[in-house]
Amino acid sequence: MKYLLGAVDTVPLLLDGLVTTLLICGLASILALVGAVCIVAARRSGIGVVVWTAKVYVTLMRGLPIVILVFLLYFGVPALFDLGRVSALWVGVLALAMNGAAFQSEVLRGAIARLPNGQTEGAYALGLNKFQLWRLVLTPQVLPIALPALAGEIGFLIKASPVLSLITVVDLTRRAQQVTMQTFDPLGPLLAACFLYFLLIGSISWVSRYLETRLTVGRTR
């Protein structure tokens, strides 16, 4: 009983960490989506250097562990350019967004590749310009194909977000560690944090699966 009462006291602390984690992941996901659209545009631009740069960027992000990316950006780059202290939170969000953008761009590229060529040709035949083609014809078809996988990518982003606790950001993982230090309870806070992560990521993968069944109705190939 005493244990339970003590545990209840730590709930606000953990929830505070959860809010930080949510904030980080929300911001990073939005930035990542914007970045992903830019990468896809760059890869379709037809300008050799731009296409090549985008390809190299995606390969780098796919091959580099998020931990190393965060350490490079938070410890390495400021040391190289003598920037002094940088905000761990913003560097973390930037790193998550950089990583997420590469993976989300691959999702978008795959979804665009699944559209038959006739859509573009038909749109041009009807006299639509490039902007109208994307706004009216392609995007409404790409989104339903890409949404479930994009939701999945957001799940991966949340799963990677504890990396920020390694650079002193007080997110859910770090909060759990702090509560452990305070209460000398090695398992409880971590289990609680684990449960909260499970709820968060689990609900997103559930949404992803729901979207998949919902959006593929009448589009069987």
Binding site: A176, L187, L190, L191, C194, I201
Partner: peptide
């Protein structure tokens, strides 16, 4: 499978180390 796939690896590793301590 769902438990492992829907939680971060760092938390799993921390839990495992804590469990070893307990």
């Amino acid at each position: 499978v769902e438990l492992i796939r829907n939680t971060p690896f760092l938390i799993q590793a921390m839990l495992l180390f804590a469990l070893m301590g307990v």
